[in-house]
């Protein structure tokens, strides 16, 4: 098996090696990737859309269909993960475990007894002994707001600097995942629960497709943002710039929510208990 695999891999590598002399040299300005539509994008992006970051302009305007369906792929990946893993049946445990955060004592509460779920002093845990990591929790509490702020900056400033909906959405999702790792999943649910995450991912895709539909209703082509000019009180070029921003916000929302929902489902294997 290993030997066969090695032979196959060597053949694939040999074929790729054999084809490489026909490829353009490293840093060749005449490479086919830079020849056909790419010069048009570089030379006309600013006058067409008033967006200096050409990658953003191509992503959300010239190749808007591609990005819309990529967002749909991400959304369906989040949904697929939910359908594969989520278990709604509750475990039939009669006892619950709580940790007193200040002393680290674990309480076992038999059936019938109940502690308030939102109590700050007690925290529900699933295994018998889980240490309370004060340093990790305090540090992540200090870091998370700044990461979120930076994510919003990356989304909003994607027109002028490297950034945009995908990157900002991933950073925002990472902030929430950091919170969920440093505390536990139950606390993360109190900030952003499962339903809100799924609704946000659907809302992001809907915002993207809805913007396209709005252009259609206003008499243009699908995703032709210049038709939004009257709606946004600007000229056709700035309307394209603003349309890109709206779409990027949709992408950011969808990506953030899908990342968070993937983490929720994978880290707890669909049970949505305390997680990792």
């Amino acid at each position: 098996m290993r030997f066969l695999a090695l032979i196959t891999i060597l053949m694939v590598g040999g074929l790729l090696f054999y084809g490489t002399p026909d490829f353009p040299a490293w840093g060749d300005p005449e490479s086919p990737a830079s020849l056909h539509v790419s010069p048009y994008y570089i030379e006309h992006a600013v006058e067409d859309t008033a967006v200096p970051n050409i990658v953003t302009a191509v992503l959300a305007d010239y190749r808007g269909y591609d990005t819309m369906f990529e967002t749909a792929v991400i959304f369906s990946a989040g949904i697929a993960c939910l359908f594969l893993l989520r278990i709604y049946r509750r475990k039939s445990t009669t006892t619950r475990l709580y940790r007193h955060n200040l002393t680290g004592i674990t309480l076992r509460i038999a059936k019938g007894g109940k502690l308030p779920e939102g109590s700050a002093e007690f925290e529900r845990i699933d295994s018998l002994w889980v240490p309370y990591d004060m340093i990790i929790k305090v540090t992540s509490r200090l870091v998370v707001p700044f990461v979120q702020l930076f994510a919003l900056y990356v989304i909003a400033h994607g027109h002028h600097s490297p950034g945009g909906g995908f990157q900002g959405g991933v950073i925002f999702g990472a902030a929430i995942i950091l919170y969920a790792i440093s505390n536990d999943l139950r606390r993360a649910f109190r900030r952003l629960n499962e339903k809100a995450a799924l609704l946000a991912s659907a809302a992001g895709v809907l915002l993207y497709a809805g913007t396209g539909l709005m252009c259609l209703l206003l008499g243009g082509n699908f995703l032709d943002y210049s038709k939004l000019a009257d709606l946004l009180y600007t000229d056709a070029i700035m309307a394209r710039s603003h349309g890109i921003l709206i779409v990027e916000i949709g992408v950011g929302l969808a990506v953030m929510a899908v990342m968070v929902s993937l983490y929720y489902n994978l880290s707890s294997a669909g049970r949505h208990d305390e997680g990792l």
Binding site: S31, S34, S38, I54, V58
Partner: peptide, 11 residues
Amino acid sequence: ISPLPHVLMLT
């Protein structure tokens, strides 16, 4: 540099 491959890889 050419923006197109970057767009494709970003997604």
